[in-house]
Design a protein around this nucleic acid. Structure first.
Lengths: 235, 235
DNA sequence: TTTGTTTGCGTCTAAAGTACATATAATTTT
DNA sequence: AAAATTATATGTACTTTAGACGCAAACAAA
């Protein structure tokens, strides 16, 4: 593409057009999972400089012919082995000096997975993979702490407004108390069991099963499931 | 930057790293203003192909050494002459074929201005500038209709939750009825005057002035102003 | 002084949210 | 096998918020 051609396209700059086509785009994913009462985020330990040895969000550069959501989904699938993952673009970060390799603008994505489903494995460029409680996130590489914060803000807002996202971290069958504990952990405050139950059951996408809990040393709780079709109808 | 150097930085790809640094980034701004009971959006008519003659959102490519918000602010200031403008990144769009010039990923921004304050002037690459009512937006160039829709969704949500953004379109002194009309127009539904008033005055960032309306042929309404410091404290 | 119009405040009612009490169903202990 | 324990499940009362509506006050114009 020549400068002249670019002008025909409606651009007229004092610097050559090629100068503009020097950005790289990356996606960084904040992957949330729920395990034993705690909500955790998957981090990878960087195996090379810059930030060698530091924990970072999993992410990758976007390929030249790849859509943005597609790139995020690729990262998620490669890392977790899961195909169907709830995923949402949260915010785009592009400080001039945020990456040492050049001008890399990154899109922060939030993803929610059923944690027990996926094998914990380090991928290509990561030394190590780990899950960190969301209230104890270490100092991360690049501007990843900021990306994490934005995603957590979104997750908190979703749970506060009872929008049906937290279920993405739950197993197919779960008790209402399980979900209460997830919500309490993320919001970092106690909620009234009875009222939480009523609020949840008022939503029509949550459906009771005939089944109950097994192997508990008290009255077993009823199990519930999510009707995803009804969620789609709402939105 | 050589392939080897890139690998040292933690990347290991099957295609050369340079291939990734071929993106351009742009910002596209949905600029909202309020005038005589109607909320409008500023569009520019494209003076060159592609989409010559079509209306489009004002925007520009991001310079190699320019931060993203900085680029959006530059576009806004150039176009409106205003320095202080409320502005918010809404969503990033990057379909592979969204731009004919090459791979251009664009960030959609929403901006709110006091419309009467700024001179309507066409800028460099635009043939014409116009204001369009938000419920009568024409078919736009590129994926700009989608960008507009996302921004409008955000604006509606903000007004519904009484978050203090709509005031950015109001003059410094305004009546509560003015703001009611703005809100009714955006949400496209009628609201109860008395209840809207109560709801607004319950927020503590809205402060009454001693002044009242002039030159009206009925009881003049009290004028109010916004206390921006209190808004910052809240968020 | 009267009439028309809009502001601005008050009241009532329904709905949603919160706090807390009580009944229920299972296991564990005695 | 009865009592104690634990957590589920439901019900009830109180509080706050949202929505509908009435009416007096303020000003302009006739």
């Amino acid at each position: 593409m020549t400068r002249k051609a670019a002008e025909d396209y409606g651009y007229d700059y004092n610097i050559p057009l090629d100068e503009f086509f020097q950005f790289a785009i990356s996606v960084d994913c904040v992957i949330y999972g729920y395990h034993e009462g705690k909500v955790k985020v998957m981090l990878i330990k960087r195996g090379a400089d810059p930030y060698k040895g530091k924990w970072a969000l999993p992410g990758d550069l976007v390929y030249p012919k790849e859509a943005l959501d597609e790139a995020a989904r690729r990262v998620l699938t490669e890392l977790t082995g899961l195909e169907e993952i709830y995923m949402k673009q949260v915010h785009t970060f592009g400080a001039v000096d945020r990456h040492t390799l050049g001008r890399v603008v990154t899109l922060g994505y939030m993803a929610l997975i059923e944690m027990y489903k996926h094998p914990l494995k380090a991928d290509g460029w990561a030394e190590e993979v780990g899950w960190f409680e969301i209230h104890e996130i270490p100092d991360l590489a690049f501007d990843h702490n900021e990306i994490f914060s934005e995603s957590l803000k979104f997750l908190k807002q979703s749970l506060e407004s009872h929008s049906p996202v937290g279920f993405e971290m739950m197993p197919k069958k779960f008790t209402l108390l399980d979900y209460l504990e997830l919500t309490e952990y993320v919001l970092n405050k106690r909620l009234d069991k009875a009222n939480f139950r009523k609020k949840l059951l008022a939503q029509d996408f949550i459906e009771p099963l005939e089944e109950v809990q097994k192997n508990v040393k008290h009255r077993p709780a009823k199990l519930y499931k999510i009707n995803k079709k009804k969620i789609e109808l709402e939105t």
